[in-house]
Write a protein that binds this DNA or RNA. Structure first.
Lengths: 123, 123
DNA sequence: CTCGTATTCAACCGATTGGTTGATCAAAGG
DNA sequence: CCTTTGATCAACCAATCGGTTGAATACGAG
């Protein structure tokens, strides 16, 4: 299920790395909208917004369907989860690492002491 | 703290949007390393890796200190949290929206139901 | 002082990005 | 039919990206 390959991470994070695109996502989180509606608040051409939407679409974050001559976009909300999961897993991994390191340090630095287990941490 | 401005989101997500950089972060999550050590596994010049490290540093994801002629890098693990939070908050917002929409739909499609009185809210 | 090691700085290069404008396509409305 | 509306396609542009090589810097060891 959406295996979240390296390549998908690339495109997804790249898509999120632009304020215009994040703004578009925020707008879409409220509900579907056409390209024109999405472009209206921005001081840039409709074509530029359309390009941003293409980036978001290729990142799997939105989908565009056809409706008469309009092109309504909708948020692909199930695409966000895996990203959170990836980042969160990464964070947890680093924290686990530090927890283990703390153990080692505590044991290592006070061989005689019963080791109150908290040398001190984070700034 | 680390107010996580739009600009910080830009640089942070951009930093994460590259497989080499994610790989560097993964390596650093295991422990500090010098530029040379970090560059060794990659089929690219040390200079290129150094540039990637600069990107990561400016994104606030790592810090480089000086140690003789070496430049050990360490992961800035407290920088990850806010990113997870941002993404997770976004996800939660979209899901809430959908939950509310579900309510509306449920109420709308079954007019006989007592309709638990939800006038609708914000936006 | 000189040499080797670790790293960055500087210039360059091709590909991509984020924007523009103008033309084109598709559908609805006179 | 022709015109308007909504959106994309195509070409172009400057700026940035990800990489290269070569020179400069900083430090430790002879």
């Amino acid at each position: 299920m959406t295996a979240l390959t390296e390549d998908r991470l690339d495109t997804a994070f790249l898509a999120l790395a632009d304020p215009t695109r994040r703004s578009l996502l925020a707008r879409l989180s409220v509900g579907d909208a056409t390209v024109g509606e999405l472009a209206a608040p921005f001081a840039m051409s409709v074509q530029a917004v359309s390009k941003h939407l293409t980036v978001l679409e290729q990142a799997g974050l939105i989908t565009r369907r056809r409706e008469a001559q309009r092109r309504p976009c909708s948020l692909n909300r199930e695409a966000i989860g895996p990203l959170v999961d990836w980042l969160d897993a990464f964070r947890r991994r680093t924290e686990e690492k530090f927890a283990r390191l703390d153990e080692v340090l505590a044991r290592d630095l006070s061989p005689t002491t019963p080791s109150p287990a908290h040398p001190d941490r984070e700034e």
